[in-house]
């Protein structure tokens, strides 16, 4: 099996005719962990949503390929079935649909008709992953994200990630609103994926804070400002950002306002 790859070039994305991403590029391969850092309002979450195909975001220029296929020619569900996953910052609540039913539907959506996952196998896997994420069994039978706390929703996103075995996962501010214990648990889940799947799993972590990167060691760190990557480096870049903030980058590059003008 070839190593998965997500390649983005010169991406421009608008929301309601306002350009947010202005020439973004990156390549994430299986076995690699990339972190995208940056202050608020620089277009990080727009990137995540646009790559998954959120209906509110319009790609106006540039291209993206996923395992060599044109990503923007694929429907949202096709992207997912090809192995792209987005752990969302604000996942939807779906009343009346239980967590377990939903995850099983999602797993079966990837499989051929007549080759659905057996109930026993599903239950075993779900129990095992929930155990890793220290989630109470009752979450299986609760309606999808309905009435979940912020932290519970984040764990549930990682649970889905672990259940669906994607090739490339994008984590959109998965650390926001998590206490340190929850952060450790969520990181444990990602690290387990990384160890088990090796070259077959890549990850793009979008975060505001460096602290998540204490638990998930990135191979590459990128800084995003004004809707594109302005600086890239190794893990040491994240450490410097944690110690010194972003001002030195702005100074170095002569940037006054790092945002894309969002409120």
């Amino acid at each position: 099996m070839s190593t998965p790859s997500l390649k983005v070039e010169d991406l421009h994305v608008s929301i309601e005719d306002k350009e947010i991403l202005k020439g973004f590029g990156i390549e994430v391969k299986g076995g690699e962990i990339h972190a995208i850092m940056g202050p608020n309002g620089t277009g990080k979450s727009t990137l995540a949503s646009a790559l998954m195909g959120h209906p509110k975001y319009e790609v106006t220029k540039g291209n993206a390929t996923f395992n060599g296929e044109d990503l923007f020619e694929m429907e949202v569900d096709e992207r997912a079935r090809a192995g792209l996953f987005l752990a969302m910052q604000y996942p939807s609540e779906i009343s009346g649909v239980t967590n377990a039913d939903f995850v099983r539907s999602a797993i079966n959506a990837k499989r051929e008709e007549g080759d659905e996952i057996s109930l026993m196998k599903f239950i075993r896997k779900m129990d095992e992953k929930m155990n890793t994420l220290e989630m109470d069994e009752s979450f299986q039978h609760r309606y999808l994200n309905e009435g979940f706390s912020g932290g519970e929703k984040k764990r549930n996103e990682i649970l889905q990630l672990m259940m669906l075995d994607p090739k490339i996962a994008i984590l959109d501010e998965i650390d926001s609103g998590l206490d340190i214990d929850a952060l450790k648990v969520v990181s444990k889940g990602i690290n387990q994926m990384r160890e088990e799947r090796k070259e077959d799993f890549g990850c793009l972590i979008i975060t505001h804070y460096q602290r998540l990167l204490n638990y998930i060691k990135p191979d590459f760190v990128h800084v995003m400002m004004q809707g594109k990557i302005v600086k890239s480096g190794g893990p040491e870049l994240a450490e410097r950002l944690e110690a010194e903030g972003y001002d030195w980058i702005k100074e170095e590059l002569g940037i006054e306002d790092e945002t894309v003008g969002q409120e």
Binding site: M52, A80, M88
Partner: peptide, 29 residues
Amino acid sequence: DPVQMFYLMSRGISRREAERLIIHGFLAP
């Protein structure tokens, strides 16, 4: 809600199946 549809489809569920889940969920109460 198109955002709900996006969420369900982002897990690989087809548009049709996502609609089905939302309808069942809507009638479930």
